[in-house]
Design a protein around this nucleic acid. Sequence first.
DNA 1: CAAACATACAACCAAACGGTTGTAGGTTGT
DNA 2: ACAACCTACAACCGTTTGGTTGTATGTTTG
Lengths: 109, 109
Amino acid sequence: MTETSEDRADAMFHALSDRTRRDILRRVLAGEHSVTTLATSYDMSFAAVQKHVAVLERAGLLTKRRHGREALASGDVEAVRSVSSMLTELEEVWRGRIARIDALLSEET
Amino acid sequence: MTETSEDRADAMFHALSDRTRRDILRRVLAGEHSVTTLATSYDMSFAAVQKHVAVLERAGLLTKRRHGREALASGDVEAVRSVSSMLTELEEVWRGRIARIDALLSEET
DNA sequence: CAAACATACAACCAAACGGTTGTAGGTTGT
DNA sequence: ACAACCTACAACCGTTTGGTTGTATGTTTG
């Protein structure tokens, strides 16, 4: 299975489509947090929060590093920027700035 | 039921999390298209495409106007920009530019 | 060593999602 | 008038999602 850019876009926008995950992302962008630390902030089980972290991780929006028994998560600002640039591309389509719109519309890369 | 900004964010990111919807959005940002015109571009039923358009409309990413028997859809670039600004806020959290982070983290507006 | 702690993951469940077909209503053109 | 067309929406179906509980494994500390 080839991991296309559309697959990555799907995963990133999906990861961002849940408010708990957006909140987690804010926290780990502000600084490293362990999964249990994050979990205490939400009115749901540890396992649920851990799943949310996993979704963000699979989308590339955060990375985890092991420190003893804890998993420290931190946000990847570059990934956030890459989502921004997808939206900028949309804006450019609107502005008509892209010459070969047909090529863009049918791109499968 | 109060429509919070988090609700809108949920709807927008969810709408953007499907590649067919992102493609539809590109087309209607480039110019007005009827639903049937859009539908011919995809290998799925008219009803499926119509549902995708409805999701984008509910999220505020496109608007429809009636012209006789056809519904002409056009993309709302301001809505796209509002999604961009959500991501910019995330970037600013990372940069530590936001003074009262706690207020932002717990905002319910 | 044993107890407490932090994580990971499987199994399960109700609800939402993304697709289908079918039906119905408004608009256009002959 | 009527056939063709465009849209809207309901009903249905398999899969995914977001939550739960339970179990297993590794790490720290008394």
